[in-house]
Design a protein around this nucleic acid. Structure first.
Lengths: 354, 354
DNA sequence: ATGAAAGCGCTAACAT
DNA sequence: ATGTTAGCGCTTTCAT
């Protein structure tokens, strides 16, 4: 097995305490002792056991990151951000993927607790989420991202889904569309529900009915986007425009429309939540709300480390701003009430405390 | 703090040994004792510390997964696969992202060693990779994926890059192209080098020179694909076809071509390594080699658990098969020597031991 | 069938 | 400036 602190101490002719002091750069240790310890470490290729250390100091230098779907590009740069910040703090990231499955979510949260992680960042699969509450009750520092959690006052980083969806759908309305379909994620997650609300607000403002047949929801996966869009296109009177509430659903929607030989935006307009890099490659470019994914991850990680450092800190609920990227998929917008430039300007990457 | 085994023992009126026996379902324990222990656990919401357990039994139920770039979709379903298999074995996955940076790679491998993970799956950033060798010398079970490692005989899961690239480039040649540019990943990783070899083999077979000006290599990132492709398009005599060696590079290449208003395949043909889901959305569809990413991950994880179970098992080097997805991006293929159907048939998802 | 006790590798009082 | 020692929470002989 690997060398341990005792071996280093023996070889260096000092006690384990001295070795530990060298390791942590704390306390007094003579230059001479330090040198021989360092030499011994080198010689034995000593790698201190973080396992033992964590047990002893009763906290590990690992944070858990539980995302709801690793297939979703939205989470990828978020992961990168968390990783970057964690690295700065000398922490490692324990990444888990709930796969939109609340059982897996519970499993992983239990696991993180059992591994005694220092804190957790989580995007809950549902708004009322017992496993998350349990985490909260166990006094484990944690930060919620992307989706809000009901019944607890906890550090949170989200975007204003209602407001941005409202703007996006309004954009479609201003282009003259009156029959706008919606393909959304399930409404047990707040993102799904709020995006529905934004959609509903916009229609209501234009005194349009909220026709149930135009609304489709499911777990946000590509195949679901595909099927739901097909359902909408199969309607006796199909929508002239589509609002899609998530990037995976968008891939499916796009494919469904293409396969039928329909063209965007002439046959049907398309506007969606979430930007993905390939969207700049497809023609026509998609009009989307772009979330600052890296910022969300960075902010959440910073919040978490603040909370770890000071558990008594007051709770912060941060809303980050998005950008409206207007491209060609909703058609010409000569008749847009709000000029595109103004909309984009209003959506700087600022932060506000709610 | 959370309840510990002592608390459970006290509440249940038994010793810690008995609690431990209940926990692990090993050794004799009376039905009566079991019941009261279970009740005590419930009441205290006891979560055994895997940290302490790992220290005691000298091995954790965590495997490390170090991928070279989390932005690359290639790795995502691979991650999913590893996660699925690990879960079956009651292991957790410690996912790290080297970001094509060998310092980060070293940092994470050291970290994994310090955390005493049970084993590691890694896609090395370079062919001669000291941190990986160190892992090997420390007798930590590990499996190499995607890229081979020189100087050691270690469990490996890769694809036959040379062979598939050869087929793909030959396809371009059979379509009549004689000036084929290549945009590849750096050749310190075996994927880059081997894909170059496949390219070279095909050209050589057609007795074409290997013109250095047609070959561009860099770290596989989108912006590099963009710049390198622009360089090729800027040549006095630009290539009529392009082979791109990796999906991130392909996004960049595609963008560069689009931005110049060039059309695929009329102005320039395009064929690439790696499939990504959005490729079915762009027009024209891209001709690509599709790697069985999930299979690669699954195979690697299975190999790792075999090795953990029996360190003396003979080393396995597995080559998984790819699929050639022929679409419209390399032009019509009436003049293709090998019919597409036959090529695809030859590329079933079989396995072979090299 | 159960308990007592040692010890995994490390840190942190406390003593010198 | 350095060493001694107890103990983090768990498992596992070895007794009984």
């Amino acid at each position: 097995m690997a060398a341990k602190i005792k071996d280093v101490a023996r070889l260096a002719g000092v006690s384990t305490a001295t070795v530990s002091r060298v390791l942590s750069n704390e306390g007094y240790v003579s230059e001479e002792a330090r040198k021989s310890v360092l030499a011994a470490m080198e010689q034995l290729r000593y790698q201190p056991s973080r396992l033992a250390r964590s047990l002893r100091v009763q906290r590990s230098r690992i944070i858990g990151l539980l995302i709801s779907d690793i297939q979703n590009p939205f989470f990828i740069s978020l992961v990168r951000a968390v990783e970057d910040i964690a690295l700065q703090h000398q922490y490692a990231v324990f990444l888990c993927n709930a796969d939109e499955n609340s059982e897996k979510e519970k499993f992983y949260l239990d696991l993180m607790q059992a591994e005694r992680v220092a804190g957790v960042i989580v995007s809950p699969t549902r708004e009322r989420d017992d496993p998350c509450l349990q985490l909260f009750q166990a006094d484990i520092p944690f930060v919620v991202i992307d989706r809000k959690l009901a019944d607890v006052n906890v550090d949170t980083v989200v975007v204003d889904n209602i407001q941005y969806t409202y703007q996006l759908v309004k954009h479609l309305l201003e282009d003259g569309h009156r029959r706008i379909g919606a393909v959304l994620g399930i409404s047990t997650a707040t993102t799904g529900r709020e995006r529905y609300e934004g959609y509903a607000q916009a229609l209501t403002e234009y005194q349009l009915p909220l026709s149930p047949e135009l609304l489709r929801t499911s777990i946000p996966r590509e195949e679901n986007g595909y099927h739901l869009t097909n359902e909408l296109l199969d309607l006796a009177e199909p929508p002239t425009a589509l609002f899609v509430g998530n990037n995976l659903l968008t891939v499916g929607a796009f494919r469904a429309i293409s396969e039928r030989g329909r063209t965007i935006p002439d046959d049907i307009a398309l506007a969606a939540f979430d930007e993905v890099d390939w969207m700049s490659l497809v023609k026509p470019g998609l009009t989307v709300i772009k979330q600052p994914t890296y910022d969300i991850g960075r902010t959440a990680a910073e919040l978490l480390f603040q909370r770890i450092a000071d558990p008594l800190l007051s709770v912060q609920q941060i809303t980050v701003h998005c950008t409206l990227n207007i491209r060609q998929s909703c058609g010409l917008h000569q008749n847009t009430g709000v000029p595109a430039s103004q909309v984009v300007q209003a959506a700087q990457k600022e932060r506000e405390i709610v």
